[in-house]
Amino acid sequence: MRMKRRGLKLLVVLVAALLAASVGSGALRPTATTVGVGLTLSVDQSALGVTVGSQAVVLGTVSQPGSLLGSVSLAVTGAPSGATVTYPHTVIAGVPFVISVLTGASTPVGSYALQITATSGTSSATITVNLVVSLPTGFTMVLSPPSRTVVDGSSTSYTLNINRGLLAGAIGLQVTGLPQYATASVSPSLSILGSTATVNVNVPTNVVPGSYLITVKGTALLASATASAYLIVQPQTYPNFPISGTPDRVLSPGGPIGAINVSMTNPFNAPMTVTNLGVALQSTDKTGCGIGNYQVTAYSGPASLTIPANSTRTLQQLGVPRAQWPQVQMLNLPSNQDACKTALVQYKITATGNGA
């Protein structure tokens, strides 16, 4: 039988994410954890101190096994009178949440046990945080909102409100707790005479994703105060960095195997590490010619490939031997001699890109 040569078309569908990462100061880690029936509840501070007229914040996370479905309800009890407690009443497992306690002028000085309870169906977990309320030394400050979520490579801001009391002089401000490489500025200035300021935080792409407790310290002639809020940094993602490739052979039944010299473009200003490279058959445009007429051999080269900033590299240019490229072959079946004639085969190339 005469072998007929088949045409081939490659459809590239990209699944990729560029994650900015670096070596920096460590993000917050849980200091207290309670394991309930099917739920685990953690907080990063087991004790909080707050002055009357100020705000305390604590960050928590809930985890649950995959067998538990549905949302996780959150409840907080035990706050002192005259205090306002703010928190999300429904949380997602694995996603950090922030609880804030804003004390008022009528809040009594003392020690209180805040009970945080997470519930999912019949499963629950409770953890206790000790809250100590004391008198201020002359003025108080509140940083709001209690938390900001920001993506690597962007910026955010907080509002600092100062209750001066009888204080009339300048207050010097200092911002601490920022992750490595992040910067902060205070407007109108680092030494203010008013009662309101804006704290701007810039988070470049090399900041390690995580949760950070940002603290503003105010210092006057005979008094000082602090105000804190959380900065939650999420990784930067890029859903479509360019990737493509076609087999280097024309496919025919039982004919030579075509190897795909995948080409990857890094459009970003930092090296990109590509992992999880794969090729999968999608469909053909011929009735009666299914993808079962073709066979794909997975990529078997190095698990990690580095693409320099603002450049394109093929597997060949990266030194990967042809035998390790993804490969596709048309099987020699009686049913595909005519049914697959001039068929256009669609493929999906997938990869994950991580910022260096």
Rank of each mutant, 00 (worst) to 15 (best):
S42M: 12
P242Q: 13
N163R: 02
T312Y: 03
L231R: 10
V58M: 05
M264L: 08
T61I: 09
A227S: 15
S157Y: 02
T119C: 09
S100I: 12
T149N: 11
T219K: 13
V129W: 12
A20W: 12
V50K: 09
S157T: 10
F139M: 14
T34A: 15
T159Q: 08
P209D: 05
V250H: 02
I214V: 14
S304E: 13
A56L: 14
T103R: 09
V132E: 03
S335A: 14
V95M: 08
A47K: 12
W325Q: 01
V50D: 10
L213W: 04
V279L: 15
T176I: 09
A220Q: 06
G290M: 06
V58I: 10
V208L: 15
G278F: 00
S111L: 02
V72C: 07
G24L: 04
G194N: 10
Y87C: 01
D248S: 01
A184N: 00
A182C: 06
L19V: 15
T352Y: 00
N206P: 01
N336E: 09
P88Q: 07
Q327E: 05
G288P: 09
V132Y: 13
V208H: 03
T117Q: 14
T61V: 11
G153N: 04
P145I: 08
P271M: 10
P253V: 01
T140S: 13
S42V: 05
A75Y: 00
L10N: 06
G258Y: 08
V57Y: 03
L221H: 13
A182M: 03
A270L: 11
Q329L: 07
G38C: 09
V91K: 01
A27R: 06
P108M: 14
L14H: 08
V12L: 06
G172T: 15
N200K: 14
V250G: 04
T77Y: 04
G165V: 10
V35L: 10
G292Y: 02
G26P: 02
K4V: 13
T51E: 11
P235Q: 06
R5F: 03
N206C: 00
A182F: 02
I349C: 01
L74F: 03
F241N: 01
V101T: 13
A125N: 02
Q327V: 04
T33F: 02
Y181K: 04
K217Y: 04
L344V: 02
G49H: 06
G36N: 11
P108W: 14
L59H: 12
S244E: 07
L69S: 14
N240Q: 07
D152E: 15
H89T: 14
V296M: 07
V76R: 11
V250M: 00
L41N: 03
P239T: 08
P321T: 13
L74S: 05
L8N: 09
G210Q: 10
I116N: 02
G210N: 12
S46P: 00
Q45Y: 12
V23K: 13
Y347C: 10
T312Q: 08
L315F: 11
